[in-house]
């Protein structure tokens, strides 16, 4: 982390700073002592972890544990209150080569707009950062077809995206990332609103992509699925409770520690992110009775 102290730098500086093939390039996401809160209370505190090229990392944690916020920080959508966040060797906030990252947002069944747009058009968006203000070329369209073929959606290319099932939509969004030649796939609760059968097929697809070298960082509420598929588990509840292999996680008590604090009133509080002004640290029993609000 030798560049840590550098404040946000312009695009040009980032270009010259590009780490290329040397050491740092293998670290795709690097989070160090990260603290952030929407209001006064931190949502994530002193979080450090790294994702290396080829990793398949699943972040789990109770509702409101800061998982999604952590992803947004890693992507540079928020400015950290303290600590640092680097993406492909650059500070996340100043990261310019956006096409190298593919992002699949939370709950695509709910959030996909009811507008007329075909699957092919959605996937083509992956090419937009490459095309800039220029025209979309034939080779762009070829990549779109290829990406759709990879996720098994070729035949649905001309369908309206709103006519698809949740699982099919997720595939379309992954195809968009693939079409953009992303090196890192970031997914925020990808299986919300997806039926159980499609969830399995969906994780198979992620595993296949990972086998082919795609780095994957995902936030997921389905602990079983993460333990089964990811090569590394990060258990988060404002701070990191566990970071290691799924086997080690199953043997540890991290799950109880991280979720135990939340079995009380906080359950069913889907966005309790700013709702706990009193610190949770070392307050394991006291949480059960009273809710933070």
């Amino acid at each position: 982390m030798s560049f840590e102290g550098i404040p946000s730098i312009g695009v040009d500086a980032v270009e010259t700073n590009r780490s290329g093939e040397n050491g740092e390039a293998d670290r795709v996401v690097d989070v160090v002592d990260l603290t952030f809160g929407y209001a006064a209370a931190p949502v994530v505190e002193d979080v450090s972890f790294g994702v290396d090229r080829g990793d398949y990392v699943g972040v789990i944690g109770p509702n409101g544990s800061g998982k999604s916020t952590l992803l947004r920080l890693a992507l540079g959508l928020h400015e950290p209150d303290a600590g640092s966040c680097r993406l492909l060797g650059h500070p996340s906030l100043a990261f310019a080569e956006r096409e190298r990252v593919g992002y699949v947002a939370q709950d695509v069944t709910e959030n996909t707009k009811r507008m007329p747009i075909t699957v092919a058009e959605v996937v083509l968006m992956g090419r937009f950062p490459h095309a800039g203000f220029g025209r979309v070329t034939q080779s762009d369209r070829e990549r779109v077809r290829e990406a759709l073929r990879t996720v098994g959606m070729e035949r649905l290319a001309d369908r309206k995206i709103t006519a698809l099932s949740g699982g099919q939509r997720q595939r379309a969004y992954i195809a968009r990332a693939l079409a953009g030649e992303a090196e890192l796939l970031v997914l925020d609760e990808p299986t919300v609103g997806v039926d159980a059968e499609s969830v399995d097929a969906f994780f198979e697809l992620l595993s296949d992509l990972n086998d082919e070298g795609m780095t994957i960082l995902l936030v997921e509420h389905d602990i079983g699925a993460v333990l089964e598929h990811a090569s590394r588990v990060i258990c988060l509840n404002r701070e990191v409770y566990f970071d290691g292999s799924p086997t080690a996680f199953a043997e540890s008590d991290a799950l109880d520690r991280a979720y135990g604090t939340n079995l009380g009133g906080r359950k069913g509080d889907p966005d309790g992110r700013k709702g706990d002004p009193d610190g949770r640290k070392g307050d394991l029993d006291g949480r059960n009775g009273g809710d933070g609000r």
Binding site: A96, E99, Y103, K113, M115, M125, G180
Partner: peptide, 13 residues
């Protein structure tokens, strides 16, 4: 892009 998915558009720079 911005119309369809504002967050993804931001991620895309």
């Amino acid at each position: 892009y911005v119309t369809f998915d504002e967050t993804a558009a931001r991620v895309a720079g």
